[in-house]
Amino acid sequence: MADVAAAPPRAQHNWSIGWGDAGPFLALAALVAIGYLINPDFLSANNIANVVTRSAFIAIIAIGATFVISSGGLDLSVGSMAAFITGVMILFMNTVAPSVGTAAIPLGMAVALVTGIACGLLNGTIVTVGRIEPFIATLGTMGIFRALITYMTDGGTVAIDRSLRDAYRPVYFGDVLGVPIPILVSLAVALVAAYVLYRTRYGRRCVAVGANEDVARYSGISVTRIRITAYVIQGACVAIAAICYVPRLGAATPTTGLLWELQVITAVVIGGTALRGGRGRVWGTVAGAVILEFIANLMVLSDFVSEYLVAAVQGVIIIIAMLIQRMSKR
């Protein structure tokens, strides 16, 4: 029939994948090579471990954001939500620590997860049932969570009880066979997330809703349920990140998680997930989060960027990373 002649011949290249999905990893590899040339210390095991561990929070939250964004949503509240969950968790643990001792830590983790899921449910419900633009809805909850943490801390700091500090510390600073625990946690989260997004009915539906809400609805998919679930996954991811975050500095402050939402969205987009929805890349997101942290690290390790220009150079590198990604798609 007329099929073959109908579509322009170069269309096939536009759609081909493989190289396109490799974009963020190519960018990451390029960055590592450049980093080594700038300062060989960059590749020291210690530095790499530090930087990748640091990127775990953003990576875990960004994995959740991959679901929200590929389902066509957006969540600006993740940074504030992380701070809020951290605060709730610390206050809870400090309250129960005198009576239950270090058992307060697993209880605190459970409370964090429940809080995160509840926050996600709130966001998802406002967006879907309330039919409010995700940008505005989560901008609202962003303010709410931020104000709550400020109120809980009196604008200052709530620190974890001293009796729990050392018991909890290994969750950030510990390692298994030399691999820091936060890295293991983010790998586990990424594995589960990749499975859910690529290999389950939910993942299919999630991407379908993001690609075209109408098609999904006409195909008998409950758009509301899929979207809310995506926000709940996001909330759970934020809680997991908060659980890893608490032992690092042992405190929640009103500036905890400030502007994380922007880093998270940047990581997701660098990773190849379409900001308009319909395409999610879990491993790309992880690469994106690591890229962001590597860039910041390189800024300090290199000597040729004035401290005043660091942000500008970071911006340029992010744009270049996106261009590499875009070009590898052609």
Binding site: A208, A211, N212, D214, V215, A216, R217, Y218
Partner: peptide, 15 residues
């Protein structure tokens, strides 16, 4: 409203 134009055929078929 019928097909996800950017998706492959199998996911469209079974959606």
């Amino acid at each position: 409203k019928g097909l996800l134009l950017g998706e492959r055929l199998a996911p469209n078929l079974t959606l």
